[in-house]
Each structure stands twice: as C-alpha cells, then as structure tokens.
Amino acid sequence: MDHEKETEEERVKSALEIAMERISGLPELTPEEIAEQKEREYRPVGEALANKYMQEILDENDLLSGFNDHQGVAGTIVRRALVAHLCRSIQLDDFQATVRAMNGLCQLAGDAEGIREKANTAWTRILDDFENRKNKTLQENEASERERLNVLGISGSAVRPNLKDNESLKKKLDELHASFEPGLEGLRAVFLQQLQPE
C-alpha cells in the first residue's frame, strides 16, 4: 500500500517537474515582444475611450480622467491611442466630429500654450478656405452642366442639374480634399506635439 502511494506521489511530482521543465525551456520574451503585448492590451483601451467620447457617451471630463487613469507604459499607450483616434476624427467632411474631437483634445492639453486658440484659428482658416474652394468648384460645375443643357435646348429657372452623380465633379472634389490633407495634418500635429511628447 505504502509502496503504491509513493509511486503515485512520484508520478505526480514528475508530471509537475516535466511541466516546469517545459516552461523553463521556453525562451524569455524580448523587450520588443513585451512592448507589443502591452500595445495589444492597452491600445484598445485608448481607442474605446475616444470612441465613447465621440459618440457622446462620455463628456470632456470623463475623457480627461480616462486619459490620466493609467500610469507608466500602459498610460503612454492609452494616451497615444486616444490622441491618435481623436486626431483622425479631424476631417473636412464632418464639421461636428471635428469640433468635438478638437474640444476633447484641447481639454486633454489643458490649454497648454494657448492650444485651443491656435487650433481654432487653424481650423477656421482651413474650413473657410475649403468651403470657398468647394463652392467655387460646385458653381463652375453647375455652370458647365447648364451650358451642356443649353446646347440641347434646355434652360430656365425650373431647371437644376443633378450634380450628385456627376463623375467629373466627384473627381474634382476628391482632388480638392487631397489638397487640404497637408493643412489638416498640420492641425493634427499641433495636438500630437503637445500631447504625445514621448
């Protein structure tokens, strides 16, 4: 009986030993792998925070406390993801989202170096310039469509060409958007420099 018990213990012990040996046989994670693992763990936290703020589930104060919630490397990753997401929301086509993202970013920056003023001035200038050029493009396109209709013998105050499905206009507007991207990048950089110094 005793002999049998000993054998059982030995068997269990050796199974544990085998497992330990296997674990000890695994190579250690490299610093890069550890960094990647942390990134995978904390980036979604920052993105989720930004998402909830953009969807108006969180307000600017919630955003700020979420921003300061995590310490060390985790905090850096959360903040970077959060700021990057808000910066991506700065888009010419979505005025409301842009204003919300900028308000959030200004809150995070705590108005360091008058960032709110700086960003608002830059955004207003970009938006005004874009709207002016977009309206000009639309007007030019409408005029050329009206001219095309005129050649066919169709004109008058009841007539408004459908520009929504106009391929050449779409192309022109795409080009216009692309030409404003560097300006938007500059605006995003104002926040990135302030909020992601590391």
Partner: peptide, 24 residues
Amino acid sequence: GRVDIYLQDGMLELAAGKQSGLQI
C-alpha cells in the same frame, strides 16, 4: 432610373423659343 435634372417652381425654357416655355 437616374435623374439628370431636378425640376422646381419656375420656367422650363426650350429651344423652340418663347412660345415653348413651360411653367413648372
């Protein structure tokens, strides 16, 4: 179908001249 021209209150003028203008 695809709409090329939106009509609104006003005149739809046609090539055939003043006599052919249609009020929408």
